[in-house]
Design a protein around this nucleic acid. Structure first.
Length: 578
RNA sequence: GGGCGUGUAGCAUAGCCUGGAUAAUGCACCGGCCUCCUAAGCCGGGGACCGCGGGUUCGAAUCCUGCCGCGCCCGCCA
């Protein structure tokens, strides 16, 4: 409840001035009470004890007495063990919750006006999407929604791997299969298998390997026959990605795809510009730049290779071209990369290089949004090539199946058609919420039971709270009671607690946007849902008294709206019933 | 060797940026609550040398420093 700080600091300022405590940043001493039973806001005075030659208790008591009249109608002021504690006044909370419910955006201020590019998901052509892609896709998608809600203009970019040396062998293999009568769609029906087999042949067959290398040259040279196969490969893979994205319910579409092939023609100009800045040096035949103090194992300065000794470009150059494109063509101010932690150093070097080369200036920000690994229950990282990796499509399908069983058990009245629709929302929501609810830096163990457990701090818990709210509202509609008025009167403790948690929602979005940390929103939504649970038990809505009833419908309505909005920021849908 | 991340009840986590009171939440465990709006729920309870050692401070999970464990990265793959 950040809004509570404003009147407090206004009341506090003259008191501090009188005490000659002019140098203190008033907002930094006002904090959340660690002990919630003491108050909503606490201000500690121990640090001034020596300067004022008084005990913290005395100071706190004095200050409390001074500001109490000023905060009449806003909060109850008390002092205890050197703290001034302030409990928000129910009337003040009522006023704020009314304002929040009248507004458009659940209290989220649209005050961030940056133009942001978010690079996320980034699967590879001719490879199946697996759990490894889950995190980038889910986290990135949530960040898009969060920053948009804050007023940013966000451009999604899906930097797919559709270019480079592996395509020689993939195209060659396609060609082989075609001559033996296999249709492309058939050959690529199992992308993971196709890649594995091709790799195997490449490693064992000298002749194939040679032809593959030849094929890369043809591809680079724009050989039409080769490009036709390449396009088939791309097209079929994109269909697969689309299927996953649709099931997952993310914002990414074909329009957001920016493959590496797009940047390929731009690479010479990147090198040219780096050369003009005098940054490029020759090292073992390769053209490199030294963007910073990174060192290798031998303690030698670590270069960023922008052109290989064999004359080819590699990913560093491509990433630089990408930055130039985003800044100069798209006009991006903030560049966000949702890419695994293992590429941290690479991106730091690329960002530093971009600054040295003058591609970005101090107005631009670059952020590598890293995230931890998805581990297998047996330990170790889940891998894609060696087999045994969980395909993303399979994972999501199983999540949906399990959700369907749960829905059928809990609510047999729902017809099969609606049930399967709900199952998708619940199953996918469970997976997404589980991925987002913890600090993204941490690894997590991929565990069906944990992901799909519908108890505790989970997506389904939030969805369930929302569905119950919806159920109450529908009942009232049947009784002819609508909730257009939105009148609040917080009589019970549980109502007050719920209202306070709702008021804290906008701040959680601010923090999430600032730190690019969706889990801060998860936490607050869970608190709101918990508070609703308590309210639900204590405060029946379907009561005789029409005034009380419409007041409680108002609380339900705003709670439902905030939950749905918040889940929306996570990319988690909220079914009407479940 | 260097860099990045991480270490908090049996398990999984939040809090660390910006230092405050009895360290918060979920799972598991124990005890209650469905003639009443969905029990996927609610109420209560037990359970923590906040990795270890120093330092700064009236006060440290939080800041500084040194160790230790785990994970990832460290030049022609992305």
């Amino acid at each position: 409840m950040r809004e509570l700080h404003m009147p407090i600091s206004k009341a506090l300022q003259p008191v501090l001035n009188k005490l000659n405590l002019t140098g203190v940043d008033i907002n930094s001493i006002i904090g959340k009470a660690t002990d919630q039973s003491q108050g909503d806001v606490a201000i500690p005075f121990h640090r001034f004890s020596r300067e004022l030659k008084k005990s913290p208790q005395e100071i706190a008591e004095h200050v409390a007495n001074q500001i109490r009249p000023e905060l009449e109608g806003i909060g109850q002021v008390t002092s205890k063990s050197g703290f001034v504690n302030i409990v928000a006044d129910p009337s003040w909370v009522t006023k704020r919750i009314t304002e929040l419910s009248m507004g458009q955006n659940c209290g989220i201020s649209r005050d961030a006006k940056r133009k942001v590019v978010i690079d996320y998901s980034s699967p590879n052509i001719a490879k199946e999407m697996h759990v490894g892609h889950l995190r980038s896709t889910v986290i990135g998608d949530s960040l898009v929604r969060i920053l948009e809600s804050k007023g940013c203009s966000v451009i999604r970019e899906n930097h797919i791997g559709d270019w480079g040396t592996p395509f020689g062998m993939l195209i060659e293999r396609m060609e082989n299969l075609k001559t033996s009568g296999v249709k492309p769609e058939e050959a690529l029906s199992d992308l993971g298998e196709f890649y594995r087999q091709t790799r195997e042949i490449f490693d064992s067959d000298d002749d194939f390997r040679m032809r593959s290398r030849n094929r890369v040259v043809k591809l680079q040279a724009g050989d039409e026959e080769t490009l036709v196969i390449w396009r088939q490969l791309v097209h079929i893979s994109l269909e697969h990605f689309k299927e996953v994205y649709e099931l997952l319910g993310v914002l990414l579409t074909d329009k957001d795809i920016m493959g590496e092939s797009y940047y390929d023609p731009l690479l010479p100009s990147v090198l040219h510009r780096l050369n003009e800045s005098g940054l490029v040096e020759i090292n073992d035949g390769a053209q490199v730049i030294y963007p910073g103090e990174w060192v290798n194992r031998e303690g030698e300065k670590l270069p960023l290779i922008v052109k290989k000794a064999d004359g080819g470009y590699n990913y560093a150059t491509s990433d630089l071209a990408c930055i130039i494109d985003r800044v100069e063509r798209l006009g991006a101010e903030d560049l966000i990369y949702v890419v695994g932690a293992e590429q941290k150093q690479h991106f730091e070097m690329v960002f530093a290089s971009a600054r040295l080369g003058g591609f970005i200036d101090p107005n631009h920000t670059t952020r590598h949004v890293q995230f931890g690994l998805v581990l297998s229950p047996e330990g170790g990282k889940l891998k894609s090539r060696s087999g045994g990796a969980v395909k993303l499509l399979d994972l999501l399908t199983e999540a949906v199946e399990r959700a369907e069983k749960s829905v059928a058990e809990r609510n047999p009245k729902i017809n099969p058609e609606e049930r399967s629709r709900i199952a998708r929302i619940v199953g996918v929501g469970a997976v997404k919420y589980h991925d987002l609810k913890a600090d993204r830096n941490r690894d997590y163990v991929f565990d069906w039971d944990k992901m799909l457990s519908f108890e505790g701090d989970t997506g389904p818990y939030l969805q369930y709270a929302h569905a119950r709210i919806n159920s109450i509202i529908n009942r009232n509609k049947k009784d002819g009671i609508t909730n257009g008025s939105m009148i609040f009167n917080l009589r019970e403790d549980t109502e007050l607690r719920l209202a306070k948690e709702i008021l804290r929602f906008p701040e959680s979005v601010n923090i999430a946007a600032r730190d690019l940390a969706p889990h801060r929103i998860c936490q607050q939504l869970h608190r709101i849902a918990q508070a609703f649970g308590a309210f639900y038990e204590k405060c029946p809505v379907l009561v005789e008294d029409p005034i009380l009833r419409s007041e409680r419908v108002s609380i339900c309505t705003i709670t439902g709206t905030v939950l749905k909005t918040g889940m929306g920021l996570l990319g988690v849908e909220a079914p009407e019933r479940m």
